[in-house]
Nucleic acid binder design. Structure first.
Lengths: 192, 192
DNA sequence: CCCTAAAGCTAATGCGATTAGCTTATTGGC
DNA sequence: GCCAATAAGCTAATCGCATTAGCTTTAGGG
């Protein structure tokens, strides 16, 4: 029998590509059967590369959050102030639109036992957001509030958009711009 | 054999109470076995009241979104302007904290085939948010943007909080207040 | 009192995850 | 180039859960 030549990474990659095809529901309903089928392998063979379905999902989340960090960081580098925040917001929304299932997995796939690897990767993303706010010279005791406000607004918009919560998708781009402007303006006055 | 006296409503209610005990992951991992066990009935008996597990979940979402509408509407009634928005935000966050799994079910439990009943119930919630903004005298062509901004920010904060995305929960109340103030201030200038 | 519809049950099927134990390809050391 | 050890893959079997089929019994209206 010819070997498939799988690795943990390739299995995770196959799984991520599978859920991409299936909207936001993809992550929750991924099955080892589907992954094995796509990989051209019997189901139990996957256990040579992942410990369980849960382990696979966790690995998928880690991979996805790292991707998100990468595109976010790229957007923020070389910019500052409103420019940085705007670029960050568009990068995150762009990633979510391009890979709804991956964004969804990162944000809603967590269980009680999020492992350290995911926590670390997520903290990395957080640092990018923090970096984007550097130019505002926020007082230290308000920085955390500003970060949370920015994250909340961006994240909420993206989740509602992905989940179809906005109804007709008309003018979503405009609404997003309005939201970002509201934020960038507000960030200058957080300290009041 | 003594009858259990179940109805569709009581089955949904049992299921909702079950997931309440299980954090945000509860909705995704609910099983008919668990519901039947709690109801004191054999699993297939549930099919006399719900068509399938999917049907039960849909009914749970409808019930949850109606609850959310009710507490939101109650908070907004008799208030206006910043007062209304602040009350609405706290009501929604309060509901989410009290019933994480129900909020999670409403916002992330949707599939491609959301039925009309859920759509209608969700539209009702939307109307409450719209009502809370009445006092701002927003230009008609910006109202939709304002609604979306408000929803995004509230929703994002709550989701991040429930999902543990904020790390240590220190001072979350303060951060939420800052966010709301940022919003209420911003709402006055959306038209610029 | 009887008769029908609804509520429940048991038995059986199927699918997906997981485990155990076997077989064979690959590969590093000779 | 050959050989043992390791790793990758397979088949068979078990378990939990959803779902369907078909039977039994309760409850309530005539």
């Amino acid at each position: 029998m010819a070997r498939a030549g799988l690795t943990r990474e390739s299995v995770v990659d196959i799984a991520l590509k599978l859920i991409d095809a299936d909207g936001t529901a993809g992550f929750g309903s991924i099955t080892l059967s589907a992954v094995a089928g796509r990989a051209g392998v019997a189901v139990p063979s996957l256990y040579k590369h992942v410990a369980s379905l849960g382990d696979l999902k966790q690995a998928m989340r880690v991979a996805a959050v790292r991707e998100l960090t990468r595109v976010s960081a790229e957007a923020v580098m070389g910019r500052s102030g409103d420019d940085a925040v705007t670029a960050l917001a568009h990068a995150m929304r762009g990633f979510a639109r391009q890979h709804p299932a991956r964004y969804w997995a990162v944000q809603t796939g967590g269980g009680l036992a999020d492992d350290q690897e995911f926590q670390d990767a997520a903290a990395e993303t957080l640092r990018v957001v923090e970096g984007a706010l550097r130019g505002y010279a926020l007082p230290a005791d308000r920085l955390v509030d500003a970060i949370r406000a920015l994250r909340s607004a961006m994240h909420g918009f993206v989740m509602l958009e992905l989940g179809g919560g906005f109804g007709l998708p008309d003018d979503l781009d405009d609404s997003f711009d309005v939201l970002i402007r509201l934020l960038t303006r507000g960030l200058s006055t957080v300290s009041d």
